[in-house]
């Protein structure tokens, strides 16, 4: 390859590169302004795990402690007592979100469909203690469920960090999802399986 060939190749290479960047200058940016514009997460996104309730608002959890056993990082803490019928009653259900790694195994192993991974992912807090979610808080978040359980996950509404405008848009956006009406009661093992 002669010198001129080299120079010519070099110039074409450089010019081609510049054309690429110039074309992209007029493309629509692919990024969006995150806190104002929110991603439309698919159902099944593994955000924080929440506890699901039935129609009457009772937790589906039976305190079988499978999730606590299977959790790889051991962040689920459950205490229960037996009532007069020898049935287990859930007393405490704490998840230490500061150590949770969002693997979703808890939701997966639950035979009663009592835990699901929600789309809540903005968990920052000023106090570390606040990251330990107790039964009531987890249940409250679980009641925000809208839509079906898909891939062990749910979508929530009334996200504390959601702007009102986005919320209106968000509910409109989910209307065209394949399964519109939220089943009132999640059946046992109620996943898309």
């Amino acid at each position: 390859m002669g010198l001129w060939q080299q120079v010519a190749d070099g110039v074409t290479g450089v010019v081609k590169g510049h054309l690429v960047t110039f074309r992209n200058l007029f493309r629509r940016p692919v990024t969006y302004r995150y806190p104002e514009v929110r991603p439309n997460l698919p159902v099944g996104t593994r955000g924080m795990p929440v506890l699901l309730s039935d129609d009457e608002g009772n937790l589906l959890c039976t305190a079988c402690e499978v999730c606590a056993r299977e959790c790889p990082v051991q962040v689920i803490h459950i205490t229960a007592h037996r009532d007069e019928n020898k049935k287990k009653v859930l007393d405490e259900f704490d998840i230490d979100m500061s150590r949770c790694m969002f693997c979703g195994i808890c939701a997966e192993v639950c035979a009663f469909g009592a835990i699901a991974m929600s789309d809540i992912y903005e968990l920052a807090d000023f106090e570390q203690e606040n990251l330990i979610y107790n039964k009531e808080r987890l249940a409250e978040l679980g009641r925000r469920r809208k839509g079906p359980i898909i891939n062990y996950g749910i979508k929530t509404e009334g996200n504390p960090y959601q702007s009102p405008a986005e919320e209106a848009e968000g509910s409109a956006g989910t209307a065209d999802k394949p399964a519109q009406s939220a089943p009132a009661t999640p059946t046992a093992g109620g996943t898309s399986r």
């Binding site: 997460l41 698919p42 099944g44 996104t45 593994r46 790694m101 969002f102 693997c103 979703g104 195994i105 997966e108 991974m117 891939n151 062990y152 996950g153 898309s192 399986r193």
Partner: peptide, 22 residues
């Protein structure tokens, strides 16, 4: 990836005998 596995990096998708979600 996110749509099927639920995560963008830490998939936890493969299972002994198959995969987590269809």
């Amino acid at each position: 990836f996110e749509e099927i596995t639920g995560a963008r990096m830490m998939y936890n998708y493969m299972r002994v005998g198959g995969v987590r979600n269809d």
